[in-house]
Amino acid sequence: MKKLILFLLSGMTIMACKTDLVSRIGEEDMANGGYIRTVTPYPVANSTFSVSKANMGGTRMEFLAEAVTPDHGAWFASYDLSIAFVDATPANGTKNVAARALKSLPASGFTPDATTLYPRATITVTGTEALTATGLTAADVSAGDRFDVTGVMRLTDGRTFTASNTGANITGGAFYSSPFYYRINVAN
């Protein structure tokens, strides 16, 4: 009787383990895109930087960026930045400025990193560049105002990636560190 029970249990165990084979999804069949990863400073606290109202030309937003696409950045064409101004201090008037083109950084301006092999570049926006792009003067900004910089990654096949068509793991995750958005606060 014990042998029969053991035999039945063994048979049930073998039958329970039987599965249908599932085909593996090949990487070539998956949708791929790209993102600009912030390498340093890491992590970027809410992607926030500051410029000094007293020294707009000498202060800046600056970070080391890495273009990540399949084949170590081979699909990367450019990273285009736009800038808007949010006037949070009505004492000197309200001079909000909608998003305008700031600069385009071509893939040719990025250099492959020796360790990761992905192309990297230092991205800098000075306070003076922010003023010029928005058409403002130093008198138009006050401590407490801010500039909002947004990025668009362009690929060689014409596709674009922004915060709105990229997943939360990429834009908000500490590992990927790719917000496609940078805030420049105006300080004293």
Rank of each mutant, 00 (worst) to 15 (best):
K53R: 11
V86R: 02
A88N: 15
G57T: 11
P70N: 10
G26M: 13
E27W: 11
R37Q: 12
I25E: 07
R37E: 11
T59P: 01
A77D: 06
I83Y: 01
A31W: 09
K53V: 10
Y79K: 01
F85A: 00
W75D: 08
T89M: 14
D87A: 05
H72I: 02
D29V: 00
S78G: 10
L21G: 12
F76N: 01
Y35T: 02
D80Q: 05
D71R: 14
S47M: 06
A31K: 10
T69F: 12
Y35I: 06
H72A: 14
T40Y: 11
R24N: 14
V68S: 05
A54W: 10
N32D: 15
A84Q: 04
E28P: 04
G58N: 13
K18Y: 15
L81R: 05
T38S: 05
L21T: 12
V51T: 01
M61F: 02
D20N: 14
R60K: 15
T59S: 10
N55P: 04
T89C: 12
A77G: 09
A31L: 09
F49V: 07
S82Y: 08
P43M: 05
V22K: 15
G34K: 00
D71W: 03
T38E: 04
A65S: 10
A77M: 01
V86K: 00
S52L: 10
S47K: 06
V39D: 02
T38L: 08
K53D: 09
F63G: 07
A88E: 14
P90V: 08
R24Y: 12
P43E: 07
S47R: 10
F63K: 00
V86T: 08
N46L: 13
M56W: 08
A54D: 13
N46G: 10
L81D: 00
V44G: 06
A45Q: 13
P90D: 14
A67Y: 00
I36A: 05
T38H: 01
E66Y: 12
G34N: 03
S50R: 11
S50F: 10
D20P: 04
S52F: 06
I36T: 02
A67F: 05
T40Q: 07
A88S: 12
S47F: 03
K18E: 11
M30Y: 09
